[in-house]
Design a protein around this nucleic acid. Structure first.
Lengths: 220, 220
DNA sequence: GGCACTTGTTGTACCGAGTCCAGAAAGGGT
DNA sequence: ACCCTTTCTGGACTCGGTACAACAAGTGCC
């Protein structure tokens, strides 16, 4: 229950204690009165009404007709509300990296995995559909840091495993690719309704980075 | 006194209210009893003794023989203690970018500015000389986010001003360069005592990124 | 129906970061 | 002496997050 959360990959994405339906024995114990979506909806309402920072967990719980403590059965932090849709996709990154076709080099592999991930992102992810919410609040932005670190860590591990190189290049490439991908995602969110596929935006941003580092990362 | 801190560039680097010595009229009002260094030293001691998270602002203030509230006259947040040496350098970035030789393109200009900045970084920056302190703590890592955003914002502004392009490429390049530079700095810190110049590490990491994006960022 | 067992919910107490503010201390200038 | 400016102090307050013990509400078994 500590889970320093720094390189783990956005734990607590599951459905709180017990994982709801579909876990082993299944249906024993007191049934859940609330649900993730209930809290999510209340929170989104409040965020749109009065902004992220000015909304307290107490209000969210009260509007959901639930005790404050119960909130933390479903979300481990206030900021997790903003990543409800994105987290399941991000959590797939290590698995996707493990599934990278073996004929690809480290750089192409990273690009492949990021595009794969972007393709799986729901069309309207995150409660921050109106991204002004997160953009305007340092607190909200801070909730993105663990995700950023998780992506970076996963990529770095993959790169160092696939390319035999011991200097700073693998980490630099991982960080640069992470940055490019996130910038693409941010721009895609900012583009609003008329935007195209996230995958294309990520492609445009990541491809040059991968191309630049590919010759520097010889096969392991 | 609000200073949302999200795109500003690590404000509150100055010496609290009044800026100490050297501001206009100079020496009027009650003289400062404590100083930034006093608090800094007490904090560093405590961080090394018991770690960053387990050290409270109360303890730092008490060891410095000062009231808790006084701490916030000198640092606007606990995390700022970790960036005392680095912040003044980072704050120079906008000015350095403004001084980029006009014959350089956007990509080369970013590289030039980052190298310039890295060259000015003190040899043992940040209280996190032993970076385990920050690496192990999500809270401590979070204090780096505003700095990261400030760097990214400054670079993005420079790139969009110097290269006429309206799609996601400028932001992607800014983010990739930021990531590469930070990865280099992190690796340099991890290298410990036997490390070379930060400038060289940043050079190695940023150059491929700049080279990749240079052809995509035609002169304005 | 009654019993154990499991799990979710509640309420409360607690901690630490950060804000706010009124009032006291410590100077300088006149 | 008396103003003026600035810092320091101490306390009250908000909010996010943790911990925990008591209670509620189901299931399965006898």
């Amino acid at each position: 229950m500590k889970a320093t959360r720094i390189g783990g990959g956005s734990e607590a994405t599951g459905t709180g204690p017990g994982m709801g339906a579909g876990t082993g024995t299944g249906t024993t114990g007191r049934p859940r009165r609330s649900s993730r979506e209930t809290l999510q909806d209340a929170a989104t309402e409040l965020f749109l009404e009065q902004g992220y920072e000015r909304t307290t967990i107490d209000e969210i719980a009260r509007r959901s007709g639930v005790a404050r403590g119960t909130f933390f059965n479903y979300f481990s932090a206030k900021g997790d509300l903003l990543w409800a849709e994105a987290d399941p996709v991000l959590d797939r990154l290590p698995a996707v990296l493990a599934a990278v076709p073996p004929e690809l080099g480290a750089a192409e592999g990273v690009r492949w995995a990021l595009l794969e991930l972007a393709g799986g992102m729901p069309a309207a992810p995150v409660a921050l559909v109106e991204r002004d919410i997160i953009g305007a609040s340092a607190d909200a932005a801070a909730s993105g840091l663990p995700r950023l670190l998780a992506v970076h860590t996963a990529l770095r591990r993959f790169v160092t495993s696939r390319a035999s190189r011991r200097d700073g290049i693998p980490a630099a490439f991982a960080a640069a690719a992470t940055g490019a991908a996130i910038a693409a995602a941010a721009g895609w969110l900012d583009a609003g309704s008329g935007r195209g596929a996230l995958r294309d935006a990520v492609d445009i941003a990541v491809t040059p980075v991968a191309a630049a580092f590919a010759p520097l990362l010889p096969r392991a």
